[in-house]
């Protein structure tokens, strides 16, 4: 594992910690899209089906369990915690997330490495992860007030896949020279979807102003 991959994983983990901290400490999930969070549960469950059949390293196993566990915890908080659920911006979280599920699944049926249940679902999870942020970005655009923790959460979540792209470049040129098109293309699309957000996030950070996305 190279430093970019580790930095990517840590950034991903950190984004989740920031989100859980916001929810737990402020007892509020305002500005957070439940649809995006539910998509992440599906992403992790379909990607880590191999949790008990394929052992890569203790690090991988622990991280997989953490990602599955925390994604369930976030959804539980937003749906069932009696205080937190009242802060959910239900009327603004309007993105039809099931419209993402079907195309990603069809694409995974068409473009995959091996036609096996495990591999098609793994491929599906990569396609779905690439677009899972869309409901969250739409919600942010509709929010007048984006609090710092929410802004930071989305920033670190986007930065994680960007660091993975650097990891892939490093692996390809300096380690094994193997092309992994499915994660690469998905990861590039995923990172590109954040471009607009990154622009306004960095702008607001430079000007010491509150983050606001143009509608």
């Amino acid at each position: 594992m190279n430093l970019f991959r580790l930095a990517g994983d840590m950034t991903h983990l950190f984004s989740i910690i920031v989100l859980l901290l916001k929810i737990h400490a402020t007892k509020s999930c305002s500005g957070i899209s439940l649809k995006t969070q539910e998509l992440y549960v599906i992403v992790f469950l379909t990607r880590y089906l191999d949790l008990f059949t394929r052992f890569v390293s203790l690090y991988n196993t622990v991280m997989k369990i953490v990602f599955i566990g925390t994604s369930f915890a976030i959804v539980w908080y937003m749906r069932y915690h009696k205080v937190v659920k009242q802060t959910y911006n239900k009327d603004e979280d309007t993105f039809k997330h099931y419209f993402l599920l079907l195309p990603c699944f069809v694409l995974a049926l068409l473009l995959h490495n091996e036609f096996t249940t495990m591999d098609v679902l793994w491929t599906f999870s990569l396609y779905l992860e690439a677009v899972a942020i869309l409901p969250q970005l739409v919600l942010l655009q509709q929010s007048r007030n984006i609090d710092n923790l929410t802004g930071n959460y989305v920033f670190f979540l986007g930065a994680y896949r960007g660091l993975y792209v650097l990891n892939w470049i490093y692996r390809y040129f300096l380690q094994d020279h193997r092309a992994r098109w499915i994660p690469w293309i998905s990861g590039l699309v995923q990172t590109a979807l954040y471009a607009d957000f990154f622009y306004y996030y960095i702008l607001s950070w430079k000007k010491h102003e509150k983050l606001k996305l143009p509608a």
């Binding site: 991959r5 994983d9 991903h12 191999d50 394929r54 890569v56 991988n60 991280m63 997989k64 990602f67 490495n113 591999d119 793994w122 993975y164 990891n167 094994d176 193997r178 992994r180 499915i182 994660p183």
Partner: peptide, 10 residues
């Protein structure tokens, strides 16, 4: 093997 497809990543 797993490294070939990228399944050794998260």
């Amino acid at each position: 093997d797993d490294g070939f497809s990228g399944k050794d990543e998260l």
